[in-house]
Write a protein that binds this DNA or RNA. Structure first.
Lengths: 212, 212
DNA sequence: CGACTACTTGAAAAGAGTCAATTCACGTGG
DNA sequence: CCACGTGAATTGACTCTTTTCAAGTAGTCG
């Protein structure tokens, strides 16, 4: 399976210091691959923390196209919203477990939530740069590096729980382009494919050189 | 000049309820067009509120390319950072006045800062969608609508304090493409150019139909 | 009036998208 | 255990949009 992004709850969940401690959170809720976590228009309830698995957060356009804003893996906290209604969809990429974070006493948590919100903001800006200033090759390279970075096998081996379509929708590309880029990276010896969803990064530096 | 984005301090500055009230802020500092407000790598000091004028916040790439993340106009608050160092550049698009917000007592402000940070996050996600899911025409259309929305002359007349290059760097396009799209919009009667920087939106609905 | 910069326009090239056809991987049932 | 069916991924040929490179025009400020 996908051992890089844990699919079973680890003994201890690494948590941004101080946050989850002060939150009363319940047991882990399990989601099958593709299961909806929340949908646009729903009333905002709480925040979530990924225990295991991967979540995609996205918007859907009128014509059915999809823009994935973020992938969240174990220990990530997501679900921030400005208003009282959800502006995004979230669902499980693979089998996934979530903890619901209900803030016991909202006020004293804002400081830490602020920190988390700013982290999300940071990631959003990085993503903007990835899409705005990279060609197809650069975007896929950035994506692989991001994934490798978030699952530290010494940074060499990357497992992709998400489909090529998910990747394409995250990078604002088409499946075909993602596939062709991966083939080119493979043929140039920069990466190696153990299987379609399991990639070895042979020359990380080469990937880095392709990104803006 | 640019009467839509006020270039002189208005009598009363509209502020997200409760925030600026509780912040001790000093007098207005003035910046010439192009003047640097802060640079990447600088130590994070405080937040800023635009009194008049327009600010661009951007990143610079190794090869000199630029990605503008946001434009900020009167009453906008900007300058959020995750760490203690600036990750962006900010400078004045035109002659601009800023108030520095120094938080008197950090803790009790987090709640309101959180709200502001989440607004920034929202905008970043919108921007991501604009760039990720629109062609050149759609991006420019979205840009004009955004600008019109933020300076309400009944939504018909838009003044652009920023250059075509600024617009291009904001939308991840080239100057030439921005120019060509504007020409096409003009020729199809969707907009009218009072001058290069002053645009009348003749058919807002047509613009809306072009965006994702 | 002249010089500088901003903006516009044109032609050619490059990159990604689209449409269509295989190939591959995997789970199911014979 | 193997054949088959299904959905995912890859590959190919072609089109279209945007970039690139190169002039040219318009505004503006001294």
């Amino acid at each position: 399976m996908f051992d890089a992004f844990p699919v079973t709850a680890p003994k201890s969940i690494s948590v941004p210091a101080g946050v989850a401690d002060r939150m009363a959170y319940g047991p882990i809720t399990n989601f099958d691959a593709g299961a909806e976590i929340y949908a646009e228009g729903e009333r905002v309830g709480s925040l979530y923390q990924v225990a295991y698995g991967v979540v995609r957060v996205y918007r859907l356009l009128a014509d059915g196209r999809r823009q994935i804003c973020a992938f969240h893996a174990a220990s990530d906290i997501f679900g921030f919203e400005t208003g009282s209604e959800r502006h995004f969809f979230a669902d499980a990429v693979c089998i996934t477990g979530l903890r619901t974070l209900r803030s016991g006493s909202e006020a004293e948590l804002s400081r830490e939530l602020l920190k988390l919100a700013l982290q999300s903001l940071d990631r959003a800006h990085d993503h903007l740069l990835t899409i705005g200033r990279n060609d197809a090759m650069g975007r896929v390279a950035a994506f692989l590096l991001e994934m490798a970075d978030r699952q530290d096998h010494g940074g060499r081996s990357v497992s992709l729980p998400m489909s090529r379509l998910d990747i394409a929708d995250y990078l604002s590309l088409t499946i075909e382009t993602v596939s062709r880029v991966i083939t080119r990276l493979k043929e140039s010896g920069v990466i190696r494919l153990a299987s379609t969803r399991q990639i070895d990064i042979v020359r990380p530096d080469a990937l880095r050189a392709m990104t803006a």
